[in-house]
Amino acid sequence: MVKAESFRSQHHLRFVMVAWAVASVIGVALSVMIMKAVLRPAASPQMADQNLTIVVFTAVAVPVAFFVLTFVGYSVWRFRTKGMPTEDGPPIRGNRLAFVLWPSVSAALCVFLLVWGLYGMTKVGTFGTPVGQGGMFGGTRSDPLVVEVTGQQWLWTFTYPSEGGFETTKLVLPVDRQVEFKVTSLDVVHSFWIRAFGVKIDAVPGQVLYTNTTPTQLGTFTARCVELCGLYHAYMQNQVDVVTAASFAAWVQSQAAPVHATAVGT
């Protein structure tokens, strides 16, 4: 009987490790390039953080994925057999290095992801509390523009309490000023999402949840509902304009003119 080959052979292990290292270097470089090309540009620090998180997590995941794929691929190729195998491979016992490295590297990766995530959460109010009031996860408050966001099937409306309390269906924000969104719903659960700003929070009837962002790019964006909410959920999208402070002031002035109800009988 021919003694079965295994990865205990230094030859095989060395080949696989070199192949894995080469594939990982190429894979990480390619993944970073592809991610940067695919991800849309960020229009707020929160979205920039989220884009960076996606790039970093992908780069970290590539060597892990290639580690598995290289071993599997090499095994399938090198130890293939025609027909049914006649015996099992030799068992592996007592490899102390593997026993130490495997859980240690896995734990280190998990801790890295955890710390990265927690750090990201300290930078933005993520638990539905007002900005600056959510403990370490409340974010930093810097004279935010408060906008009340109301979801109703199938449209968002926006009220500016600090600018006279007018209500609109187009969200207009000044660039480089922190915005605090107070989000609620009149009917069912919606979810308020502005992808370019990295903002997403549920709109729950009877509750007000908070989130915040700071738009850093002038332009037109889209706020949409990302909680399936009925017939025209796909149409529950509103235009978001980020304008200069002067343009915002002029827009507020144009909106603030009171609208008086007219008594019209039949």
């Binding site: 008086h260 109800a261 007219t262 008594a263 019209v264 009988g265 039949t266």
Partner: peptide
């Protein structure tokens, strides 16, 4: 509204 112009109505109307 029945020939009369208006830019808003009272909520109860």
């Amino acid at each position: 509204y029945n020939g009369r112009s208006a830019s808003a109505l009272g909520s109860q109307s």
